[in-house]
Design a protein around this nucleic acid. Structure first.
Length: 829
RNA sequence: GCCGAAGUGGCGGAAUUGGCAGACGCGCCGGAUUCAAAAUCCGGUGGGCGCGAGUCUGUGUGGGUUCGAAUCCCACCUUCGGCACCA
């Protein structure tokens, strides 16, 4: 027996990584006849250290990229850096004099090295860094295009303020009233800020989910909930006392005859005017102050008590001319609809509770359709379903749906309302009072107002000399050289915008830039972007389901409407990969359960690490890290290695193609297993992205090779040569280093990664005899071998002849026999 | 409250179209090798009863459809995720 050493991953992995890089194996070609394939993983924030979550996403993406290269595709597999953001500023503050720029670039080079040591096959010629002026120049350019097309605007609004990050946040970045980054509770402030009009695209973002067949349903559902489309009507209620018209949004115009009062949110613009007229100004002021003191959470919880106060002012119901009181109450929010409602206590439980409390009339206008009866007064509960109209004048007897249409039509004719769709989604607040971001390229001129920086003057570069002191304003405000400029329009002294852009803006278009990453004339050429877009597979964490993925979809649609690309959607297939857990919890410093990939790579090597993280769970599920588990995969690598070492000389000498007819039974079995494995791994990669089952199939094949070698008297080295080379090809996307090494040892030409993916032979899969399971009354009782071409009738008869079957039948009657071809026979007694 | 996903051995997971439940790996048990160990190789491993051939039982719970259900239907429980006084 030959004594062999295990694969020396520490030395050989590095060797191959360098060689691949020198040979430029991973570069995407352009204008080839091959079909393009764009494999992308969410680019990281350059924190300086890779974590296990990174190892997982990038391993998944790399397998897909390598697999597609082998199946003859021209693959674009780029990487870059989401390099703007707060951690760089915080690090600068904490570690004294490190400039965010230096910190960021140092981290990038460190992480790049770590990625290389994982054997990831990126085309580094297309690397993008969002914090680099030649990238953010185009981020600013995008902003200017949006400004030009009324998709960017500045407005005063109630916004979320994170006191710890000292900046405003978009709604998407607030989770449970706290900052998504630092979990500090946000404050609501009235401030003037920059917004992007994502609401203009609300309908498209919703409707085009239909195009996204290869997206997880739950992600589309989350976006759907977030966008929150509801159909209804805008109705105007005249207020004779002031001459105003009070606009409300309702999804139930069919219940308009049941409106017995109106409610304004305390922040509603008409509140002030109504208070003056009410004659009870002070009481109302006290009340509003009380509501505003309530914590946001308390105020917006469905369980909290509804409180309100009558203003004494009346509105007129436009449908029946009835005069109804206007209340101010805590349960109506300024942030949704118009901040005012028509209250229909009989058909809305909240209004019902309020009406009972304040002794307001309840008028039922809908009754259930059909048998059921529902009297609101009797049940002491609102009836919220659709039904048949009553007490509604000429609309009586109609069902809700047709009453909805008729009432809306009549309102429209009278100029008193119209059909309307309302969204929960709000415009995207993108300005940030931070230094380390792309400056918003506008100038404020006393005479000309807001003036965009001319495109040829881009980028508006971030000044390097800056003092990062706290204060709640952009640090750029204090950089006089930056702030003081001249107006591009009138040339008089003017001031620059000092806010920078949300980093999610940077990441909303980076996948477009990769397609033409080094273009310094344009963000990208249309022909290049169209050659690659949409991304064929996009891999990343589901924590971005709403944030990044919604913004990226929005940007792509804007780019399309600007004529920059033909793509409607950025990502054809989104693979939402699960988290990497340790001891059942997300790895975190505070829990002390962090496993550092660098230690793991050092101890087990890149191949074993990649294999384990792909094997331990299907990609979309959370994965429990296990040090024992990775040892198992290292064992597998060495099993593959060892069996080839032990037979290397003979296998290298064996030439020629295996002849099916010349094989022994055991050889035939191994040959079949090889082709079954080719089929299985191909389907798992191409159709299911189930890397775990693909790897287990390769383990089975390896086990079978060991079986064959142990049991077969005279080894067929030709067969083994064919099994080994094909197995290495199948394993290459998962474990690129050890397969390359073995490939070379077998005397094959560099590089295995430039070889074609193996194809299975139908005839190798064929069997002369197949095993048939025999069930009696659905329970497995026996099995038998039959010739593969037996007819159903023959199988049935053969089954009934079996001793065991006869024993079970005994004296009973056989009622029925079910034959499933090539699988089983079920005898029903 | 509304919407969605999931629940399978000691553990991670497999079963792709309604057809042998538990592939593969971890762990554990046994054997070979060794002076001994590590490593490696081989075998066993859902639970109950049985010396055994066997046999009963088993995919969150309870029903149902079917010759046959982890898979389909109904009801429920649990966990996770999204939205939530949204008018």
């Amino acid at each position: 027996m030959v004594v062999v050493n295990d694969f020396d991953f520490a030395e050989r992995e590095k060797y191959w990584q360098n060689l691949w890089q020198e040979e430029g194996l991973d570069k995407a070609a352009e204008d080839t006849a091959a079909e393009n394939y764009y494999a992308l993983e969410m680019f990281p924030y350059p924190s300086g250290r890779l974590h296990m979550g990174h190892v997982r996403v990038y391993s998944i993406g790399d397998v897909m990229a390598r697999f597609k290269r082998m199946t003859g595709h021209n693959v674009l597999h780029p990487m870059g850096w989401d390099a703007f953001g707060l951690p760089a500023e915080n690090a600068a503050k904490e570690h004294g004099n490190i400039h965010p720029k230096k910190w960021t670039w140092d981290n990038i080079s460190a992480m790049k090295e770590q990625m290389k040591s994982l054997g990831l096959s990126y085309d580094w010629d297309r690397e993008v860094t969002t914090a680099s002026p030649d990238y953010y120049r185009w981020t600013q350019w995008f902003f200017l295009q949006m400004l030009k097309n009324d998709l960017a605007y500045r407005e005063e609004a109630a916004v979320n303020w994170c006191p710890s990050c000292e900046t405003v946040l978009a709604n998407e970045q607030v989770v449970d009233e706290a900052c998504e980054r630092c979990e500090t509770e946000v404050e609501i402030k009235q401030l003037e800020q920059w917004f992007l009009k994502i609401t203009d695209y609300a309908d498209q973002l919703l409707d085009d989910h239909e195009l996204l067949e290869k997206w997880p349903e739950r992600v589309k559902m989350m976006q759907k909930n977030w966008i929150g489309r509801s159909e209804g009507a805008m109705i105007k209620f005249p207020v004779p006392a002031t001459g105003d018209e009070l606009e409300v949004f309702t999804t139930r115009p069919d219940t308009v005859f049941g409106a017995t009062y109106m409610v304004l949110a305390p922040e509603h613009p008409l509140v002030e005017k109504f208070m003056e007229l009410s004659g009870r100004k002070e009481e109302l002021q006290d009340f509003i102050a009380r509501v505003k003191e309530q914590e946001e959470e308390e105020r917006t919880s469905p369980d909290s008590e509804k409180i309100g106060m009558d203003t004494g002012i009346k509105a007129i119901n436009p449908m029946n001319g009835e005069e109804i009181p206007i209340f101010i109450a805590n349960y109506v929010l300024m942030g949704y609809g118009t901040g005012a409602i028509m209250a229909v206590p009989a058909h809305d439980q909240r209004d019902y509770d309020f009406a009972v409390k304040y002794d307001i009339p309840v008028r039922q206008v809908i009754i259930p359709e059909g048998e059921e009866e529902w009297d609101v007064a009797e049940k002491d509960e609102a009836f919220e379903e659709y039904g048949i109209l009553i007490n509604s004048d000429k609309y009586n007897g109609l069902n809700s749906a047709s009453a909805f249409d008729k009432i809306v039509r009549d309102l429209e004719e009278g100029g008193l309302g119209q059909q309307e769709v309302n969204f929960r989604l709000k415009d995207w607040l993108i300005s940030r009072q931070r230094y380390w971001g792309a400056p918003i390229p506008v100038v404020y001129c006393d005479d000309c107002g807001i003036v965009p920086v001319p495109e040829e003057e881009l980028p508006v570069e971030l000044p390097e000399e800056v003092e990062l002191t706290p204060g709640g304003e952009s640090p750029l405000k204090k950089v006089e050289d930056f702030v003081n400029t001249s107006c591009p329009r009138c040339d008089r002294a003017a001031k620059r915008e000092t806010d920078t852009m949300d980093t999610f803006v940077d990441s909303s278009w980076y996948f477009l830039r990769y397609t033409d990453a080094n273009n310094d004339e344009d963000p990208f050429l249309k022909e290049k972007v169209d050659a690659w877009m949409p991304v064929d597979i996009y891999v990343g964490g589901v924590e971005h389901a709403i944030l990044h993925l919604l913004y990226a979809r929005f940007f792509t649609k804007v780019a399309r409407d600007l004529g920059l690309t033909s793509a409607d959607e950025p990502f054809d297939h989104y693979l939402a990969q699960g988290m990497v857990l340790k001891d059942g919890a997300k790895m975190s410093k505070s829990k002390g359960n962090v496993v550092d990939p660098l230690n793991i790579l050092e101890k087990y090597g890149a191949d074993a690490t990649r294999l384990f993280i792909l094997f331990a769970a299907p990609p979309e599920k959370d994965l429990e890290w296990s040090n024992k588990g990775i040892e198992g995969l290292q064992r597998f690598v060495n099993r593959v290695w060892r069996v080839i070492q032990e037979n290397l000389t003979e296998v290298k000498e064996a030439t020629g193609k295996v002849e099916l007819t010349g094989l022994s039974d055991a050889g035939r079995g191994l040959y079949r297993k090889l082709h079954e494995t080719i089929k299985k791994v191909t389907v798992d990669l191409a159709e299911r992205q189930n890397f775990n089952t693909a790897i287990s199939a390769l383990m089975e094949l390896t086990n079978e090779v060991y079986q064959y070698i142990e049991t077969e008297e005279e080894l067929n080295y030709q067969l083994l040569a064919e099994v080994f080379t094909n197995k290495l090809l199948l394993l290459a996307p998962f474990a690129p280093h050890v397969t390359e090494e073995l490939w070379q040892q077998l005397g094959q030409e560099f590089s295995i990664h430039q070889n074609s993916w193996p194809e299975y032979e139908e005839e190798a899969l064929a069997r002369d005899e197949i095993e048939i399971v025999i069930q009696i009354n659905g329970k497995v009782r026996d099995r038998m071998m039959v010739s593969a071409d037996s007819s159903q009738e023959e199988v049935k008869e053969e089954a009934l002849k079996q001793d065991k079957v006869q024993k079970y039948i005994g004296s009973d009657d056989v009622k029925k026999v079910i034959v499933v071809p090539k699988k089983l026979v079920n005898v029903v007694l």
